[in-house]
Design a protein around this nucleic acid. Sequence first.
DNA 1: TGTATGATTGTATCATTGTACCAATTGTAT
DNA 2: ATACAATTGGTACAATGATACAATCATACA
Lengths: 140, 140
Amino acid sequence: MNFELDFRSGIPIYVQVVEHIRHMVLRGDLEPGDQLPTVRSLALDLRVNFNTIARAYRLLDEAGIISTQQGRGTYILSLPPPEVTDELRRKSLRSLVHQHLLDASRLGAAPEEILKLLQEQVDHWKQTGSLDNPENDKQS
Amino acid sequence: MNFELDFRSGIPIYVQVVEHIRHMVLRGDLEPGDQLPTVRSLALDLRVNFNTIARAYRLLDEAGIISTQQGRGTYILSLPPPEVTDELRRKSLRSLVHQHLLDASRLGAAPEEILKLLQEQVDHWKQTGSLDNPENDKQS
DNA sequence: TGTATGATTGTATCATTGTACCAATTGTAT
DNA sequence: ATACAATTGGTACAATGATACAATCATACA
């Protein structure tokens, strides 16, 4: 469960946690039956209060993505049928793009700049068939 | 945080607070990561309304000097010199786009689909001038 | 087995943080 | 005096944190 929080984005921490876990489930990083970190351990990991994690877990529980059980822990639920996940995939993809735009605009990028960069990397992707790292790695 | 306000100077309180804090940061009295007083405690200290302090903090936040986080507090930010941040911005942006592509491809998106979605949302952005949610999102 | 006890889980509630919105006040120009 | 804009204050709200609690599990021991 390795992801970073952005305390400056204005997006509530519990929302960030919800989105991260949703993405991990859709990507298959988390499979049905897998146990999530306890509210306390994940909170310690992310340097936030465990109530904030508990809130995220509650939302995920209400969304039918996980199952939280007092005294036992929280677990990934089985995935909905393909047509549902496909719809979910589209929504998730759109939401991902939206999130990406927010992140980029926070870095001061203009729409054209984002499109240009994406176009470049997509071209590279189509040519080489692989998603290499563009000669640098992740910063904040 | 010991400074006096001049209620007769004609200079708005929130401006005085902004200038004082900027000065303290430049002098090194406040270092990156330091937590500022809460809006309410500083307001009590200075005998003004906490909204006035909140206004000062908001301006400092927009200026990139501090980071205000609802429910957590406000903290001094570290800001590298302009040329560094500009270089960093480009690298961050490229790496952000790359990460985005990775995420999207894990969701099974083809290059064209990603570009198309981004184009849509960028168009919407340019038309409305705001990055509101594309009325989708959140679970099944 | 059965039960007692402590550790570990999530839950409930309230305090503390900053935010949003609008009303009241103040200063200033007409 | 009046009107207007800027500043400040009041109130309600949202996000996060602190604390106490309840449910479950692990362990020891009779």
